[in-house]
Amino acid sequence: ETFPLDVLVNTAAEDLPRGVDPSRKENFLSDEDFKAVFGMTRSAFANLPLWKQQNLKKEKGLF
Rank of each mutant, 00 (worst) to 15 (best):
D33A: 07
K25R: 15
E14D: 12
P49F: 01
Q54G: 07
L8C: 06
E32G: 11
D6S: 13
L50F: 12
K25E: 04
E1Q: 15
M40E: 00
D15V: 08
F3P: 03
A12H: 10
M40L: 06
L62G: 05
P17V: 04
L62F: 13
A46M: 12
D21G: 03
L16F: 07
F38H: 00
N47P: 00
L5V: 09
T11Y: 06
R18W: 08
R42P: 06
A44D: 14
V20Y: 05
V9F: 06
Q53I: 02
P49T: 03
F38N: 00
S23Y: 12
E14P: 10
L16Y: 14
V37W: 02
K60N: 11
K25D: 05
S23R: 12
T2W: 12
K57R: 09
F63E: 15
E59Q: 10
K35M: 15
L29Q: 01
V7F: 15
E32S: 09
V20N: 05
G39V: 02
S43V: 13
T2S: 09
P4V: 03
F38M: 08
D31I: 05
P4L: 05
E59G: 04
N27P: 03
V37H: 05
W51H: 10
K52H: 12
G61C: 09
E1R: 10
P4C: 07
P22R: 06
F45Q: 00
F38D: 00
P49C: 04
Q54C: 14
D6H: 15
F63R: 08
T2M: 09
L48I: 03
N27C: 14
F34E: 00
L16C: 08
M40F: 03
L62H: 05
F38L: 07
R18L: 15
V20K: 04
E26N: 03
N47G: 10
T11A: 12
R24K: 12
P17L: 05
P49M: 01
K60R: 07
Q54Y: 12
T11N: 08
E1Y: 12
A44H: 10
F38G: 00
N27A: 15
D21I: 07
D31Q: 05
P17A: 05
L62I: 10
A44N: 09
L8K: 04
E26P: 03
A44S: 10
L5G: 04
D6P: 05
L16I: 06
N55W: 12
P22Q: 07
